[in-house]
Every structure is written in C-alpha cells, then in structure tokens.
C-alpha cells in the first residue's frame, strides 16, 4: 500500500524535523512528537468512526497509518527516517494514551457530571484507562532499571512493531530484542500483579 499524495507530507516538514532531531535538536524532536501526536489523534478518530464499532482499535494499525503518512518514497534518507519515525510514533502513542487516561481519571474524580449514566456497567472505559496508567508507571520503573528493555517494551506495546522492526530501530540483533522482550514482559507482569 502506498500513501497517496494527498495525505503524505509534501513539504517535507517532517523529514526535516526528523533530521534535526536525529542531530540532537530536542526542540525539533518535541515538534515532531507534537506533529505525529496530532496525526495519531486524527487517524484514530477516523478509524474509530468507521467499521470499528465493537472492535478493539489496533495500535499497530494506527501507528502504521501515521508512518505511511510521513514516509516519502523518494526520500534519500527514507531508511534512517523510518527508524526515527517508528520510535517517535510509539512514544507519541504512549503520550497520547497516557494524557488521555489521566484526563479521564481527573474527570472521573472531579469534573461535573454532564449526564446521569444510563447503563453504568457499560462504562468499561475507566478500567482500561487505569490499566494503561499502571502499565505506564511500570514502564517508567523499568526505564530506571534497563533503558533498552524499556525501549523494546515501548516499541512493542505502543508501536505494535515486530521483533525485526525493533531490532532495526535499536540497531541490535533480533536475538537481543527477543531476550529483552521476554525479560521485560515478565518483569512488567510481575510489577502489575
């Protein structure tokens, strides 16, 4: 599947940002995250609205759409950009979900009730946001212990990437990614018990 011209990044803004960010420009990195964040939001909204009712939104699909959008076929830096983008997309996804889960938690505690809930048992939304915050917290603790493990987990959980893709992004052997993920998963699981 190729991105069509209407949804790619014709001005190359993102490409420039990626390059700047890979040269250590933290401002560029922030702007990049913001850019992707907005896009994730938009794409997720659209995916929700169309034929997704009753399905679980696939993080993979979301992130892939973002990547598609920004990857330009003829870009000479495409391979390098892709690695950066994958990483940033996963981070953005995590930010987006965490931000939202926090907002949700606040609203649940303090915000004014707009409506009397009709079927409270259907309000399955809060548990999932709480779950997400727990995962996020555990992931932060994992970051303190082993940064690479946390990166693997982040790419896996929030980017939905495969072992091979993660190996490429992190520039390590696939075997390493496998081992890291095995351990990180057990570790997180243990934390979440």
């Amino acid at each position: 599947m190729e991105p069509d011209s209407s949804s790619s990044d014709p001005t190359g803004t993102v490409t420039k940002l990626i390059r700047a960010s890979s040269l250590g420009d933290s401002d560029a990195r922030e702007r990049l995250i913001a850019e992707i964040y907005a896009d994730l939001h938009r794409i997720a909204a659209r995916m929700m609205s169309r034929e997704r009712a009753g399905h679980t939104l696939q993080a993979t699909a979301l992130v892939n759409e973002v990547l598609l959008k920004f990857l330009i076929k003829d870009d000479p830096f495409a391979a390098e950009n892709k690695k950066q983008l994958m990483s940033i997309a996963a981070i953005s996804m995590r930010h987006m979900l965490v931000d939202h889960a926090r907002a949700k938690g606040r609203a649940k505690r303090g915000g004014p009730a707009e409506q009397i809930p009709i079927q409270t048992e259907l309000d399955g939304v809060a548990p999932s946001s709480e779950k997400l915050l727990l995962i996020n917290d555990a992931l932060r603790r994992l970051e303190q212990k082993g940064e690479r493990h946390a990166r693997v987990a982040e790419l896996r959980i929030f980017g939905g990437f495969t072992t091979e893709e993660i190996a490429e992004v992190l520039n390590v052997a696939t075997r390493t990614v496998e081992r890291d993920w095995l351990f990180a998963r057990a570790w997180l699981q243990n934390e979440l018990k």
């Binding site: 939104l57 696939q58 939202h100 779950k131 896996r156 351990f183 998963r185 570790w187 699981q189």
Partner: peptide, 23 residues
C-alpha cells in the same frame, strides 16, 4: 510471570485505551 499471562494483554490494554480516547 514469564510462563503465564495473556500474550495479547498489552495489545488489548493499549487498544482499549486508544478506543477510550475517542469514546
């Protein structure tokens, strides 16, 4: 933990959370 658990646990958790963003 390594031997147990739902292999789709994170996928489901993240998916549900993503959905709730727009819910």
């Amino acid at each position: 933990s390594a031997g147990s658990g739902d292999s789709d646990f994170y996928q489901t958790a993240v998916g549900q959370a993503a959905e709730s963003v727009f819910a």
